[in-house]
Design a binder for these strands. Structure first.
Lengths: 249, 249
DNA sequence: CGGCCGGTTGAGTACAATCAATTCTGGTGG
DNA sequence: CCACCAGAATTGATTGTACTCAACCGGCCG
């Protein structure tokens, strides 16, 4: 299961990413050394938010970057007509709040209770310029988040609702495996409506997509937030070619 | 018009991004100093590709990062069933080819004739670790590309085809303004099918979306690759609330 | 018990995908 | 300069899928 509660071992901010220099079978590792984490800890303050709370709002002055210790966070964009679109799903050892022109480009909300390190940008900048190795690790992490975002775009390019949901489940499963969890049982730290925002579809469509995958025996719901991959090969087949499954209706 | 042909003034790799420390009204600037560019130039080789050529293929060993001098590049992902989805549109002074686990996560293709700096990753890494300021600039650029990717996701979350197209046009226009071009006249360095891949819809849908916006007097096509915003306020209104325009059918 | 929140299900509609036919455009060679 | 060709783009008819709006369910809490 996806563990949102156990902090990374050790003290201080932590970032986890795929190692750019070795093949590690999709396993992410902690990039920061004990010293790097201690250095960052000196700049950081710990902040907590309850489930559902806004961490920062799009357009407000971006004076800090955040690093998740425990919990899950959604970065989302609010359109002028009031709808919300999630642009990133953030988990422990992720970084968020990077900005341009001193304003946050989107808002952030706690999906679960969260504990964060808050790093003021000015102090962080100074610190980074004195620690090239740390900077390099941050570059790796950003490249990782960029790939993640591109994958999100890929998901959104899917036409069929159940294909999007399947890609989403695969994504979450990989994240939990990459953090050392085990495959097969997926924990969703969010409501159906949040999933809908991430998948770019309505609550109803999400619900129907869950129903469709369940009816085909591909997944099974233990409860609303726990999904088990019931038929791995059908799951893989669906991901490989979304159209192949349609006939099974 | 979007200038893809004039290289950045000066010599060597160049990266352009929004300045994270000042409000610059959306205007991007060259982040690298003359010295930084010269230092990078020492590692780089210049490569050229004809329009349509593959620069690297998803899954192949990622031994270099690229920086665009002139031209436009598409980063795209090929799904097992053969369809292609564009995940990024890259222009002069952009960086691409960052990877994890020594493999490219997606393919890259020249949309126009392109000139690139090719930076071997090992040399680049060593160089970066000796130049914290340069690393910091790279961080800014990556944050920029991350925001760009999130914006792409936002676009893909739109339901109506013409809304996606409008967001796309806005995006291209901003890119050209940010690079010093002037607003109002947009150059599209790609075919309708490429646009379709970026917007996550078919060629026909792209064509119909162009037709819809033209029929409403929002845009005007000088030729296939040159779009003029004919009615700026209607354009803005459409972007603010895609549903508002439907009635105007 | 009643209200509320999160979620599911149903009927009708709107929109883009699909497949296919047709037009437009730019380049080439006579 | 024009005829021709091939690729690019548009347009048309039909179908599939998700949206919309709405009713309904089930658990939780006062």
């Amino acid at each position: 299961m996806l563990d949102l509660l156990t902090p990374a071992r050790g003290e201080g901010p932590a970032i986890r990413a795929l190692d750019p220099w070795t093949s590690s079978a999709g396993r992410m590792r902690q990039l920061l050394s004990r010293d790097e984490r201690a250095g960052l800890a000196a700049l950081a303050t710990v902040v907590r938010h309850r489930k559902g709370e806004i961490i920062y709002r799009q357009g407000s002055p971006a004076d800090a970057v955040f690093n998740i210790v425990t919990g899950a966070v959604a970065a989302f964009h609010t359109t002028p007509d009031g709808r919300e679109h999630m642009v990133a799903l953030l988990l422990p050892e992720d970084i968020f709040g990077l900005s341009a022109e001193r304003r946050y480009a989107n808002s952030a909300r706690a999906l679960t209770p969260v504990t964060l390190y808050r790093l003021p940008v000015t102090a962080l900048r100074t610190h980074l310029l004195h620690d090239p190795a740390l900077e390099f690790h941050l570059i790796c992490k950003l490249a990782q988040e960029l790939r993640q975002s591109q994958r999100h775009a890929l998901l959104l390019g899917q036409r069929r609702a159940y294909a999007r949901l399947a890609m989403f489940l695969q994504l979450i499963e990989e994240l939990q495996v990459a953090r050392g969890g085990k495959a097969g049982e997926i924990f969703l730290p969010m409501h159906r409506s949040d999933i809908g925002e991430y998948l770019g579809m309505t609550l109803s469509a999400v619900s129907r997509a869950f129903a469709a995958l369940t009816a085909r025996g591909i997944i099974a719901l233990r409860d609303r937030n726990h999904v088990r991959i019931a038929d791995r090969s059908a799951f893989e087949r669906l991901l490989a070619d979304p159209r192949a499954v349609r006939a099974a209706d």
